[in-house]
């Protein structure tokens, strides 16, 4: 039972071609809950809700066994770049 972090990653990678992807198992190892940070061009021009839907759709099979999926970040490459830059200027200051 349960889903591995690798399974989640490979499904997201093949479906959404992310520029940045970070999957964290937050269930403590049983594979029931994950948090995801994902940056993909496919999010361009889509509302947050639609972006989350894309992620959920990509994980359709896995979702049957996942209890909780927390999508922390679902950004376009452009937004991601901006955030990285602002984070950098913050840490420099």
């Amino acid at each position: 039972m349960g889903v591995t972090k690798e399974q989640v990653e490979s499904s997201l990678t093949s479906n959404l071609k992310p520029l940045h992807l970070e999957v964290t198992d937050i269930s403590g190892g049983c594979g029931a809950s994950f948090s995801v940070e994902i940056v993909s061009e496919q999010f361009e021009g889509k509302r947050l809700l639609e972006r989350h839907r894309l992620v959920n759709a990509a994980l359709q099979e896995e979702m049957k066994q996942i209890h909780a999926l927390s999508i922390k970040i679902a950004m376009t490459p452009e937004q991601w770049k901006q955030q990285q830059e602002s984070a950098e200027t913050k840490s420099e200051a």
Binding site: L48, L49, H52, R53, N56, M63, A68, L69, S70, I71, K72
Partner: peptide, 23 residues
Amino acid sequence: NWPTFPQVFVDGELVGGCDILSS
């Protein structure tokens, strides 16, 4: 077509769940 709860609607349209609202 949304798999989890909570679900928050504004003006008849789904805005999202906890992650989306928090963000």
